[in-house]
C-alpha cells in the first residue's frame, strides 16, 4: 500500500470537506455549511493563484481582480434579468440571465479575457514591477466598479436569487455547497495534472531560470501568459460562485486586501502544491471565524502564525504535514 502522506492527505481533505454538511446536520449548525462554502470558493481562487505564484513565480498582488470580474459578470447579468433592461441600449434583444449554464461560462470567459490583457502587459515586467503592475490593474477594476453607479457603485448590488441550474437546486445551501466543492475538486485535479505535464515543467523552468529557457528554445512569455490567463479564468469562476453564495456583489471583493488574503492562504497552506492553498483557505477562514468573535483585530494573531510558517515551514502547512512523516 502506498503510505506516502502526499497521496492520501488530499483524499482525506476531500473526504473531510464532503462531510461538512453531515457534521453541520449532526451539530445542528447550518451556518457551518455557509462558512465552508466560502472556504471552498476562496480555496479555488487561492489554488489558481498558487498555480502562477508557486509554480511560475509570478507574484501577482491583483488576483482578487478576477474574483471581482467573475462576480460582477454574474451580478450584472442578474441585474438585467431582474430589471428586464437590455445589457446594451443599442442591442435590445441582448438581455440578462439568471441561468448558471450561461452566467458561469461567461464569467470564466470574461475573467480569462481580462487576464489575457492584464497578463500581456504586466508579464513584460519582472519582480517588484510585476507585483506593482498587477496591483495597479486590480485597483483600476476596483475603482471602475465603484464608478459604475448603475450597478450600485461602492455599495454593490443585491441579486434576488442565486443563478439557476437544471437538476440542482442552487437555493439549497447543501446542494450549492456540493456544487462548489465539485468545482474545487475538479479544478485542483486539473491544475495538478497541468503542473506535472509538459506545460507545468516549462512554467517551473521559467521560474527558475528564464534566460536558460529562452536559450533552450522556449518562448517563455507565451507559456506564462497562458498560465496567467488560466489562473484568471479559475479566479473568475470562484468570483461567480461567490456572487451566488452571497447573492450580493460589491467592489470589496476586489479590494487589494482580498488579493493579499489569497496570497496569505497560499503561503500558509504551502506554495507550489495546489493542495496547500485549500488547507490555507480552510485555516484562514476558521481563524477568522473563531478569532473575529473575540476581536476585530484578529489579524494580530494571524500575523505571528504566518511568520512562523514562513520561518519554519517554507513549504507551508501542507509541506510540513507531508514531509515530517518521511523521517
Amino acid at each position: 500500500m502506498d503510505i506516502e502522506p502526499r497521496r492520501w492527505l488530499p483524499l482525506i481533505g476531500l473526504a473531510a470537506l464532503a462531510a461538512v454538511p453531515l457534521i453541520a446536520a449532526l451539530t445542528d449548525d447550518p451556518y457551518l455549511v455557509t462558512i465552508f462554502t466560502r472556504v471552498v470558493i476562496l480555496a479555488l481562487a487561492a489554488a489558481s493563484l498558487d498555480f502562477i505564484l508557486g509554480y511560475g513565480a509570478m507574484v501577482s498582488l491583483g488576483h482578487a481582480a478576477f474574483l471581482g470580474i467573475g462576480a460582477y459578470t454574474v451580478g450584472i447579468l442578474a441585474h438585467h434579468h431582474q430589471s428586464g433592461a437590455p445589457l446594451l441600449e443599442a442591442v435590445p434583444w441582448l438581455t440578462g440571465t439568471n441561468a448558471a449554464l450561461i452566467s458561469l461560462p461567461l464569467a470564466i470567459a470574461v475573467a480569462a479575457l481580462c487576464a489575457l490583457l492584464i497578463g500581456a502587459l504586466s508579464l513584460r515586467t519582472r519582480a517588484l514591477h510585476f507585483i506593482m503592475i498587477t496591483l495597479a490593474f486590480a485597483q483600476m477594476f476596483f475603482f471602475l466598479f465603484i464608478a459604475m453607479a448603475r450597478y450600485g457603485g461602492g455599495d454593490g448590488m443585491v441579486m434576488w436569487q442565486r443563478n439557476t441550474l437544471p437538476l440542482i437546486n442552487t437555493g439549497d445551501s447543501v446542494q450549492f455547497y456540493y456544487l462548489c466543492l465539485a468545482f474545487l475538486a475538479g479544478s485542483v485535479f486539473l491544475l495538478r495534472r497541468i503542473v506535472a505535464a509538459r506545460f507545468g515543467r516549462v512554467l517551473r523552468g521559467a521560474a527558475e531560470n528564464e534566460r536558460r529557457m529562452a536559450a533552450l528554445g522556449f518562448p517563455v512569455f507565451r507559456y506564462r501568459l497562458a498560465a496567467f490567463t488560466l489562473a484568471g479564468a479559475i479566479g473568475g469562476l470562484a468570483g461567480a460562485l461567490m456572487a451566488n453564495l452571497e447573492t450580493f456583489v460589491s467592489p470589496s471583493l476586489l479590494h487589494w486586501s482580498q488579493s493579499g488574503e489569497l496570497m496569505v492562504m497560499v503561503i500558509l497552506g504551502g506554495l507550489g502544491s495546489i493542495y496547500g492553498p485549500v488547507l490555507g483557505a480552510t485555516l484562514f477562514i476558521m481563524l477568522e471565524e473563531t478569532l473575529a468573535a473575540w476581536t476585530e483585530h484578529w489579524m494580530i494573531i494571524l500575523g505571528p502564525i504566518l511568520i512562523l510558517v514562513v520561518l519554519y515551514a517554507r513549504r507551508g502547512l501542507f509541506g510540513w504535514l507531508t514531509w515530517r512523516r518521511h523521517g
Partner: peptide
C-alpha cells in the same frame, strides 16, 4: 509544450 495532461516525467 502546450500539453496539459500527460505526466512529463
Amino acid at each position: 509544450s502546450f500539453r496539459f495532461w500527460r505526466r512529463a516525467d
